[in-house]
Design a protein around this nucleic acid. Structure first.
Lengths: 207, 207
DNA sequence: GTCTATAAATTGATAGAC
DNA sequence: GTCTATCAATTTATAGAC
């Protein structure tokens, strides 16, 4: 019995969570209707409340799940004792990999953050384990060892994230304006993005 | 009489538009209540329908207004016959200037685009006059004149926009994670952003 | 043009049968 | 655990007085 319940992939609770994730990520919190989540999950609307009590709590579970697809792997990379070059390469590689498989999550997270107060952002980030101090240490180590030029670690991480995230967050704009509805061209561009971002960022710090 | 109506800054129609802009930009289309716009404008809710018929039409007017704060100036810069160096510098300078005065507009535009279908994006962009071909021409001119290295104009414009837009779109994240709620540090960073982005981009193309 | 009152539809949430 | 029925509150939109 308990073993069967551990098979969460088919449990109602899990079906709801996955359906909620799909709809919330696509339409945002305020644009989502509980009925649409129930339809997506193929179950009765009452069950949403039975398992998650309220829309707010269900949204909270979805947001946490979305964040957990990115945070742990990226934190591990930044915390490693590899060189700053390897950390940046690995960070860019992993970020673009995950985002390619979940292209709407970056916009979802960033947009919902911008619609809530900063205490929500602070609390959520603290819980996720994200901390820029490890990145700062890796940069300072690279500087003191003479590997890279002196550089502001904050500018470095912001530039790196900017270049990684924008192709996903700005996808609708890029597809129309830059790639003129040629989705193949956009995907080819994405495929080369890792190398391009790494080279650009490394060039700004290498001696 | 007609002269007084031309003074739109105090007309009811204009008061509604400005109030709607404030609320829509802050909360998004689905998160906005007509009552809140009326309260913000200090007028009766019925007047919103009297002047704009529906929430949808009012939103359309706001979106057009928001886009018009960025598009015309940027189009003019890209269309000019200046060198690609000057175009990039002027583009970055102007974008960050406008965004600094309207820090929530970039997120508003990009988010509402991502929540509608691509035909809406295509139609809106066509109406705005935005066209990447002028930028392509300026880049190719720079290449043929031997000013810059051969470079993909699409990558160039995407990298430029990425670096310009992210400090605004990702502001809640940056303030908390990178600047640890030190809003002064964030503003100092923003003040130096123009120079930083220009140098970074120019470095990727100059011989 | 501006207001009050209210219609008409939607939506989050609960009660209760099975 | 899952369903039907329904409540209570909200929200867009309109009718009509002034």
């Amino acid at each position: 019995m308990e073993l069967n319940q551990k098979d969460k992939s088919t449990s109602t609770e899990e079906k709801i969570l996955q359906a909620a994730k799909k709809v919330f990520v696509e339409k945002g919190k305020s644009g989502t209707r509980m009925q649409e989540i129930a339809d997506e999950a193929g179950i009765n609307k009452s069950l949403l409340h039975y398992y998650y009590r309220s829309k707010d709590k269900l949204f909270g579970a979805v947001f946490k799940l979305a964040l957990s697809q990115f945070a742990p792997k990226l934190i591990k990379i930044v915390k490693s004792d590899k060189s700053i070059f390897e950390i940046i390469e690995s960070f860019v590689d992993t970020y673009i990999d995950i985002a390619s498989k979940n292209p709407f999550i970056p916009m979802f997270i960033i947009n919902e953050f911008s619609k809530r107060d900063s205490s929500f952002v602070t609390k959520t980030m603290k819980n996720s384990g994200i901390n820029v101090d490890f990145f700062r240490d890796a940069v300072e180590k690279g500087i003191s060892e003479g590997l890279i030029n002196p550089v502001d670690y904050r500018k470095l991480i912001i530039n790196t994230i900017s270049l990684c995230i924008f192709p996903f967050v700005g996808r609708p704009l890029l597809e129309v304006i830059v790639f003129k509805d040629d989705k193949i061209a956009y995907n080819e561009y994405l495929a080369n993005r890792k190398k391009e971002v790494c080279e650009l960022i490394i060039n700004t710090i290498k001696k």
